[in-house]
Write a protein that binds this DNA or RNA. Structure first.
Lengths: 102, 102
DNA sequence: CTTGTAAATAATTAAATGCTTATATATTGA
DNA sequence: TCAATATATAAGCATTTAATTATTTACAAG
């Protein structure tokens, strides 16, 4: 595996908020606006995190009217897949009572 | 797996020079001074990279006279182990002709 | 004890990162 | 067409990171 790509993916993974994003995505597609509530950061911040994940080939987007849904990409690399496997689904995504303890 | 530890390990992994270090360590123990040559950075910079890897539980050290040898830690987490498995041994460590193309 | 060598630590600096607010783009619906 | 909503982009700022040089610590040999 190319060391450059590896570094890029690892940098994309090495952030608590982005790990929470991936944790949410384990259960399926999630809308951008939902992440704003779960992570407790601004909408632009969420957007930037998602872009970083997208550029690393970890997530893909699907436009659905005004909304945009993100999901895990197909054919993830072993490294990314392992990280996702290790992530617990502790951060529930569609409610405000999520235990966001990062 | 704890998301905090996961983030810490991923941050430790998400650097090209540290990935090269791990690539070297695949073949066994390596002395600090060898890394200086391979990576082409200063000795203190190497020392700081190794400390970061050590604090993340990825490497251990062994004092051998004036020298210090580093090796991969025992019982690596699945994430770290996967990264190491994916690393090719392209960076040979004990010579100056290594293809360090990062 | 003194000298030389290996490694770690300290201090500094430049670049990268992650957040914010403000603005732009795009789509929906009256 | 116009207003409202969802998302992305731009600009600015504080923090973190990774490098450097200088210094300190630890050990080995004379």
């Amino acid at each position: 595996m190319d060391i450059q790509l590896m570094e890029k993916q690892l940098k994309a993974l090495a952030d608590c908020n982005r790990l929470k994003v991936l944790s949410c995505l384990k259960s399926g597609e999630v809308c951008v606006c939902d992440f704003v509530d779960v992570l407790g950061i601004s909408q632009p911040a969420v957007s930037q995190h998602l872009r970083k994940l997208k550029e690393a080939g970890i997530v893909t987007e699907r436009k659905r009217g005004t909304w945009k849904h993100y999901r895990l990409a197909e054919g993830l690399t072993p490294i990314v897949q392992t990280v996702i496997d290790e992530l617990e689904a502790t951060v529930t995504c569609e409610c405000g009572s999520a235990e966001v303890s990062c």
